[in-house]
Simulated assay, not measured.
Amino acid sequence: MGRKAQSAIVGSGATPYYFRGESAPQTVLELIDKAVLAAVADAGLHIDDVDGLAFFAFGFDTGMIIEQLGLKNVTFAHCVSAFGGGMAGMLDLADMAISTGRLRNVVCIGATQQVGRRVGQALGNFAASPDNIFHRIAGLNGPGQALALSARRHMHEFGTRREAFAEVVMASRAAAATRETAFRRKPLSMDEYMAAPMLADPMCKFDFCLETDGALAFVVTAADRARDRPQPPVYIAGAAQHGSCDWGRAFFWLGQTPEAFVSAGGVKVAERLYQLTGMTPADIDVACLYDHFSPLVIMQLEDFGFCARGEGGPFVESGAIRLDGAIPVNPHGGHLSEAYVVGMTHIREAVEQLRGTAVNQVQGARTALVTGGPAPTPMTAAILRSEP
């Protein structure tokens, strides 16, 4: 099973999830503070025990967080770039800080608050510049419009069908149906999916994730101290980051190689993660895959070796990602059906699965893969497990 784990998640905290903008008049700092305090309490610790912070690039003000939480002894506060792509990389930062003996308790933080500016219109929010002017000329104002080009190319190259995208969405709805925190709990039929308005051909309304507000936080401590905490530890088997010019600025950029253009950009980080942990796809019991758009679930299944390149469509259509399938994907409903907090809900689900407390518990789950989003590099991913 690879190296012995050096660190573990011992605390998990979250705010309620809100439809975009409805978290106001709370500020994003208030949301973060509430999530951190809940995570610290879940770990059976005091806020004064926190000596490190880890983020990913989503506009957090480290000084304000330290000030508002009243932190007195922060000796490590670092950020992974790559927006949602860096989400799992926070666990890498925390693991490195803990395993080197630098820190005792690191809090990993992620949040979104879409008041005034929608994440779904991110490309249009940026000022025009020489490196992004193509999007303005082509009318690609949001990530979904840009990703539609890769989705259509995957269909052209491999015969992937819209029915496969539909299955990703329907599977997420089936999982969300039992989860009170989910926004989209109503079952979805194939006919309903096909009748939905097209937003960016070949992607319809249901292929796009929710736009929500919220904050989540996780406390990471040393593996040899983790069993002293109240909750069952969830060990970080390994976390990896990888950047490559083949992927560059992700699907916001059309300079990828042909191979990268039909992927989710995760091939190299998958290779690194499996090498680091000594695991293979066959060792993964639950996959929490970043799913802000349904085609990316199919591409990530290919990138991380659950099926061969081009076979993701038929693999999904076989029922393989359902709760009783070969590899359950996003048993919480994911971004498509539960809530979108830039991947943080996926870490929460992995922790709950490995604690044995998940709403849709996968029987015998001992390992969970968590992937960062296919955003600008570095790409990140982590494998968590229930034993050190």
Results as ranks from 00 to 15, higher is better:
residue 233 P to N: 10
residue 169 V to C: 04
residue 191 D to I: 01
residue 217 A to C: 05
residue 192 E to R: 04
residue 246 D to G: 08
residue 179 R to A: 15
residue 162 R to W: 11
residue 191 D to C: 02
residue 233 P to Y: 12
residue 181 T to R: 11
residue 203 M to S: 13
residue 222 A to Q: 00
residue 230 P to S: 14
residue 246 D to S: 10
residue 205 K to C: 12
residue 162 R to G: 05
residue 202 P to T: 05
residue 217 A to K: 02
residue 191 D to N: 02
residue 211 E to Q: 10
residue 214 G to L: 02
residue 177 A to I: 11
residue 187 P to I: 00
residue 198 M to C: 12
residue 164 A to D: 14
residue 182 A to N: 06
residue 247 W to G: 10
residue 223 A to F: 04
residue 165 F to E: 01
residue 206 F to P: 15
residue 159 G to W: 13
residue 231 Q to S: 12
residue 168 V to S: 00
residue 234 V to S: 04
residue 216 L to S: 04
residue 163 E to W: 01
residue 221 T to C: 04
residue 206 F to C: 05
residue 166 A to G: 09
residue 217 A to Y: 01
residue 209 C to T: 11
residue 172 S to K: 14
residue 232 P to I: 11
residue 180 E to Q: 14
residue 244 S to P: 00
residue 169 V to D: 02
residue 237 A to G: 08
residue 208 F to K: 05
residue 180 E to C: 01
residue 176 A to S: 09
residue 202 P to D: 08
residue 228 D to T: 12
residue 182 A to Y: 00
residue 239 A to Q: 02
residue 200 A to Y: 09
residue 187 P to M: 02
residue 236 I to R: 07
residue 185 R to C: 14
residue 169 V to F: 01
residue 223 A to W: 00
residue 193 Y to N: 05
residue 235 Y to L: 05
residue 200 A to V: 07
residue 237 A to T: 02
residue 174 A to W: 03
residue 234 V to T: 14
residue 192 E to N: 00
residue 190 M to V: 13
residue 184 R to N: 09
residue 181 T to P: 11
residue 241 Q to S: 09
residue 232 P to F: 15
residue 231 Q to I: 15
residue 211 E to D: 12
residue 239 A to C: 04
residue 164 A to N: 09
residue 213 D to S: 02
residue 192 E to M: 08
residue 206 F to W: 14
residue 227 R to G: 06
residue 225 R to Y: 12
residue 172 S to Q: 13
residue 205 K to D: 12
residue 205 K to M: 07
residue 242 H to L: 10
residue 232 P to V: 13
residue 197 P to M: 04
residue 224 D to N: 10
residue 226 A to V: 09
residue 208 F to L: 06
residue 196 A to F: 05
residue 221 T to R: 05
residue 196 A to N: 06
residue 172 S to H: 15
residue 213 D to P: 12
residue 162 R to A: 11
residue 242 H to C: 13
residue 175 A to I: 00
residue 182 A to T: 03
residue 183 F to S: 07
residue 242 H to P: 06
residue 167 E to N: 08
residue 218 F to H: 03
residue 234 V to H: 12
residue 215 A to F: 04
residue 212 T to K: 03
residue 159 G to N: 12
residue 196 A to I: 02
residue 187 P to F: 00
residue 184 R to K: 11
residue 195 A to G: 07
residue 239 A to L: 01
residue 171 A to N: 04
residue 207 D to K: 15
residue 240 A to H: 03
residue 158 F to N: 08
residue 199 L to M: 06
residue 209 C to K: 15
residue 198 M to W: 08
residue 184 R to G: 02
residue 213 D to E: 00
residue 213 D to R: 04
residue 193 Y to L: 06
residue 159 G to L: 14
residue 201 D to K: 11
residue 162 R to H: 14
residue 192 E to P: 00
residue 198 M to G: 10
residue 220 V to H: 01
residue 162 R to K: 13
residue 210 L to Y: 14
residue 171 A to C: 03
residue 195 A to H: 11
residue 169 V to T: 08
residue 221 T to G: 00
residue 190 M to G: 15
residue 172 S to W: 08
